[in-house]
Design a protein around this nucleic acid. Structure first.
Length: 184
DNA sequence: GCGACAG
DNA sequence: ATCTTGTCGC
């Protein structure tokens, strides 16, 4: 799942693409164009994108086994980021994959793809800093709903065999961008 | 009080 | 998130 914004700032498009984790083929997809429901405030990010993402999810003809969100889950100041929010509201398993940290500290991650180090915050392990490509900036993986951190890590690595980000967010990114273009 | 701060 | 040229590397 991913969201794109128009230059005017008052238009957005949310997209959901469903992939077969084994073949990485897109088996279903849906988009929703609308307006941000809330201003961007770090920590309250879910309130901004959730409505549009839920609208897109409703247009799916299949039920995903896992929601891969563009943002954090447990790795949040209140331990309830976008991925947790989406998971609880839909009842579906969910995980968060962030490109930059919001909270936490971590030790350097080994250069090799597949390496990771725990993301610590306030004495808790709130996620993992995972290397999805050799020598490329790692991503921040955290649990959202109904899934273990081990499983979340495995899914992310399975979904990102070649590029830094999971194929799910890459395909969703393209979809919401073109939807935005077609919405003028 | 000050700085940091997912997308 | 979005606005943007060139550049390093496989």
């Amino acid at each position: 799942m991913d969201v794109a914004y128009g230059t005017s700032g008052d238009l957005l498009a949310a997209a959901v693409t469903v992939l077969d984790v084994r073949t990485l083929a897109v088996v279903d997809s849906a988009v929703s164009v609308g307006r941000p429901a809330f201003g961007y405030v770090p920590g309250l990010f879910a309130f901004r994108e959730l409505p549009a993402l839920l609208a897109a999810l409703d247009r799916l003809t299949t039920r995903p086994d896992l929601l891969v969100c563009d943002g954090h889950g447990l790795a949040h100041p209140r331990r309830f980021g976008l991925a947790c929010h989406l998971g609880v509201v839909t009842g579906l398993p969910s995980i968060g994959v962030g490109k930059t940290p919001l909270v936490g500290e971590w030790d350097p991650v080994q250069w090799r793809r597949g390496s990771w180090s725990p993301l610590w915050d306030g004495g808790d392990v709130v996620g993992r800093v995972v290397r999805t490509r050799d020598g490329v900036k790692p991503v921040f993986v955290s649990v959202g709903h109904r899934m273990s951190l081990d499983n979340a890590t495995a899914q992310v690595l399975a979904l990102a065999p070649r590029y830094r980000l999971p194929e799910t967010t890459r395909t969703a990114d393209r979809l919401c961008r073109e939807a935005l273009a077609g919405a003028g």
